[in-house]
Computed example of a mutant assay.
Amino acid sequence: MRVGVVTFPGTLDDRDALRAVRLAGGEPVALWHGEDSLHEVDAVVLPGGFSYGDYLRAGAISRFSPVMERVVDAARGGMPVLGICNGFQVLCEAHLLPGAMIKNAHRTFLCRDQPLRVENTRTAWTGAFEQGEVIRIPLKNQDGQYVADERTLDELEAEGRVVFRYTAGATHGPAGFEANPNGSRHDIAGITNAAGNVVGLMPHPEHAVEAGFGPDEPGAGTRTGTDGLGLFTSVLGSLAA
Rank of each mutant, 00 (worst) to 15 (best):
D73E: 15
I135E: 06
G87A: 07
P98Y: 08
N141W: 05
P218M: 01
T152N: 08
V67F: 01
L91Q: 05
A195I: 02
A211S: 13
A30V: 10
M101I: 09
Q89T: 11
E217L: 13
F129H: 10
E130R: 15
I61F: 03
N197T: 06
I137L: 01
I61S: 07
I61K: 08
E119Q: 15
T226R: 12
G173D: 05
H39Q: 15
S184K: 01
T171S: 15
G34L: 12
L38Q: 09
I135M: 03
A240G: 11
V29G: 06
D54M: 05
G49I: 09
L231V: 08
A24S: 00
E69W: 12
L31D: 07
D149A: 08
A124P: 08
A30H: 14
A30G: 14
S184V: 07
I137D: 00
E157M: 12
L156W: 02
E35N: 12
V6P: 09
T224M: 13
A94R: 08
P9D: 04
G48E: 02
V134W: 02
I61G: 06
G219N: 06
I135A: 01
G59P: 08
V162Q: 02
A58Y: 03
L18F: 04
F129L: 05
V45D: 08
K103E: 14
G48F: 07
H95M: 12
V209G: 04
G214M: 07
R161L: 13
N104W: 03
A75F: 04
N182A: 03
A30I: 09
P215C: 05
V44G: 03
P66C: 06
R185M: 14
Q145P: 00
L231C: 09
R15K: 14
V3G: 00
S238Y: 15
D73K: 15
A175N: 11
L18H: 06
R112T: 11
L139V: 01
P203S: 02
T126E: 02
A195E: 12
R112Q: 14
T126P: 05
V45L: 10
G144S: 04
P205H: 06
L116Y: 02
M202P: 07
D216M: 12
G183P: 02
E210G: 07
V67A: 04
V44Y: 00
V162N: 03
N182V: 08
F213K: 14
S51A: 15
D143K: 11
L31S: 06
L231Q: 07
V199P: 00
A58P: 00
D42W: 10
T192H: 03
A220H: 10
G132F: 09
E178W: 11
E93T: 05
V209Y: 04
A189Q: 04
D36Q: 10
A240F: 00
V209M: 05
D36S: 14
G132C: 08
V3Q: 05
V90T: 13
H106L: 13
V134T: 08
S37W: 05
